[in-house]
Design a binder for these strands. Structure first.
Length: 301
DNA sequence: CGATTTTGACCAGCGC
DNA sequence: GCGCTGGTCAAAATCG
């Protein structure tokens, strides 16, 4: 199989616990770039807006078993509890992927920008600075984040959404830069970071931040029609979204090893062939999106 | 010509 | 306070 260079076996799932919670690999414990990379990862709690509690632990246990690695020896994961819990929405009521929080931020910033643009004289810089100070007087709040690693030859993996690159930075201790993308949809505040692992250049680390406030422009199936996976009895909206993100990702970018259909991916050409387009594939709901096809196949035997 | 990418500059947060 | 680093901005360049 030679499509995008991604195999399900090569994918690593890293649910994050909170903003500062990390999954370390290798055991070195050194912040920066260790074996497969230090990753500051997903904040499952933020996805659901649920405080760090039982539900979070449940979410971890349900998603947890899906964490896998082809380098088990090198990836002994350890979860550190965060000293500073991210500012999760106070209300756990986020079952509808709410745009309120991100839209609010957007409005805020938009208003500020307008005010700045009205000032056409030389004081612009000064005013800008002042506004910035005001804007950031509060500690910057992080959007929920979700990250995962895939083996891929291409850096920017298609996920069904359109992204605009707004920055690139060199990563410490890594020859590979980190790219910053923003969803091009107006009023959608989702960002993503893409970087390569310095130890394994074939591994791409993608980190999503925020929640889309709109459907994917190139989605093979509507999120509304998603069926719950077997383990999703108590799935929180956060988990579901996390799964959806992964789902999109794998729908578009991953070949399903052993599958009767394959995914065609060509660089930025956006040429896709979703496995769902094939009637030969049984529908396992989200589980089939998350679990390598080979594993599903095994279970069926 | 609009959309997107590139890239240097700037800023905030954090550790020392 | 200072330096380092991650993240963002914004002007210029490039692309379609």
């Amino acid at each position: 199989m030679k499509e995008c260079g991604i195999k399900m076996e090569d994918c690593y799932y890293y649910p994050l616990m909170s903003n500062n919670t990390v999954l370390e690999s290798g055991g070195e414990g050194e912040k920066g770039c260790s074996s497969l990379g230090f990753m500051e990862l997903l904040n499952m709690q933020d996805f659901g807006g649920t405080p760090y509690d039982e539900e979070l632990q449940n979410s971890v246990s349900s998603v947890g078993p899906l964490i896998r690695s082809s380098d088990d020896q090198g990836l002994r994961t350890r979860i550190k509890e965060s000293a500073e819990v991210v500012n999760a929405p106070a209300t756990p009521n986020s079952s509808s992927i709410s745009s309120e929080s991100s839209a609010g931020v957007q409005n805020d910033e938009g208003t500020i920008k307008e005010e700045v643009e009205e000032q056409d004289d030389g004081e612009n810089q000064k005013i800008k600075k002042e506004l910035k100070v005001k804007k950031t007087s509060k500690k910057r709040q992080r959007e929920p984040r979700f990250a995962f690693m895939t083996k891929s030859e291409v850096d920017h993996l298609e996920d069904g959404y359109r992204w605009r690159k707004y920055g690139q930075k060199a990563v410490k201790n890594s020859p590979f830069p980190r790219s910053y993308y923003r969803c091009t949809s107006a009023s959608c505040n989702v960002k993503k970071r893409v970087e390569r692992s310095c130890n394994d250049p074939t591994v791409v680390v993608t980190t999503y931040e925020g929640q889309h406030t709109h459907p994917s422009p190139v989605m093979p199936r509507s999120p509304a029609t998603f069926s719950l996976p077997p383990y999703a009895g108590g799935a929180t909206p956060s988990q579901l979204q996390a799964q959806m993100v992964l789902s999109h990702h794998f729908n578009f970018n991953c070949g399903f090893t052993g599958s009767t259909s394959s995914v065609n991916y060509s660089g930025g050409g956006a040429q896709f062939c979703s496995p769902y387009s094939s009637g030969l594939m049984m529908d396992h709901g989200l589980l089939q999106d998350m679990v390598p096809w080979s594993i599903i196949k095994k279970e069926e035997q």
